[in-house]
């Protein structure tokens, strides 16, 4: 792969408040895999909408400028 095609094939998005650059075509499942996260234990909010259907994570590609929140349960009262 040439540097030119690599540059053209990335998307810029925000994940948990931090700017990120990912290969174009990265799916929700792919993003979770990068962080070694179990899809059953994480909720994905994409541009303010909860991605409820976890079976669609493999097929759902992220878009340039997406704002993603990955949340889970932590200790609390």
């Amino acid at each position: 792969m040439t540097p030119l095609s690599t540059a053209a094939a990335t998307i810029a998005l925000t994940v948990n408040g931090e700017p990120r650059s990912l290969p174009a075509g990265t799916t929700i499942a792919g993003l979770l895999a990068i962080h070694d996260l179990d899809a059953r234990l994480v909720v994905v909010e994409r541009n303010g909408t909860i991605e409820r259907d976890r079976t669609a994570f493999e097929a759902t590609a992220l878009d340039d400028r997406d704002v993603i929140e990955l949340v889970h349960f932590v200790g609390g009262g």
Partner: peptide
Amino acid sequence: VTVAVRRVDL
């Protein structure tokens, strides 16, 4: 048992 919702620490 109560739990809170927070960002995953990446």
